[in-house]
Amino acid sequence: MTNTIISMASNLGLDTVAEGVETIVQASFLKENNCVIIQGCFYSTPRSSSLIRSLFLNHSIPYAHTSFLIN
Score class of each variant (00 low, 15 high):
V25M: 01
E32I: 13
P62K: 09
F42Q: 04
N58H: 15
S48N: 07
A18D: 08
M8F: 15
M1Q: 11
A27K: 13
I5C: 04
L57Y: 10
F42D: 08
L12V: 06
P46I: 01
I70Q: 08
F29A: 07
I61Q: 01
S54P: 02
T2S: 00
I6L: 04
K31Q: 14
V36G: 05
Y43S: 07
H59L: 09
S7K: 15
S50P: 01
S49V: 13
G40D: 05
I52F: 07
K31M: 11
L51C: 02
T45S: 08
S60Y: 11
P46F: 03
F68T: 02
A64F: 00
S10P: 05
G40I: 06
V25G: 03
V17S: 04
N34T: 08
G20Q: 02
Y63M: 01
R53D: 12
A27N: 08
H65S: 04
P46Q: 07
S50R: 02
S60C: 11
F68E: 01
Q26M: 14
C41R: 09
T66E: 03
I38F: 12
I38Q: 15
L69M: 08
I5W: 05
M1V: 09
E22F: 03
S67H: 14
H59T: 12
L55P: 05
I52E: 00
S67P: 07
N34Q: 09
N71I: 03
P46D: 05
T66F: 01
T45C: 06
Y43W: 09
A64Q: 12
V21S: 07
I6S: 02
F56L: 15
V36Q: 15
Q39V: 10
K31F: 08
S60L: 13
S10I: 09
S54G: 06
L51D: 13
L12D: 05
I24A: 12
P62F: 05
F56E: 01
I24Y: 10
I70A: 08
S48P: 11
T2M: 00
I24F: 13
T16L: 00
G20D: 00
S10D: 11
F42I: 10
G40R: 09
R53I: 14
L12Q: 08
T66Y: 01
S67L: 11
S44G: 13
Y43H: 09
S49E: 06
T66V: 02
N71D: 12
I70E: 14
V17L: 12
H65A: 00
N3Y: 06
S28C: 11
E19H: 09
S10Y: 11
A18S: 04
F56Y: 13
T23W: 03
N71F: 04
L57W: 01
L69A: 00
E32Y: 13
A18G: 11
A27G: 09
G13H: 14
I70V: 14
L57M: 08
S44E: 14
T4L: 12
N11W: 10
N11E: 14
A9I: 05
D15T: 03
F56V: 11
Q39A: 06
M1C: 04
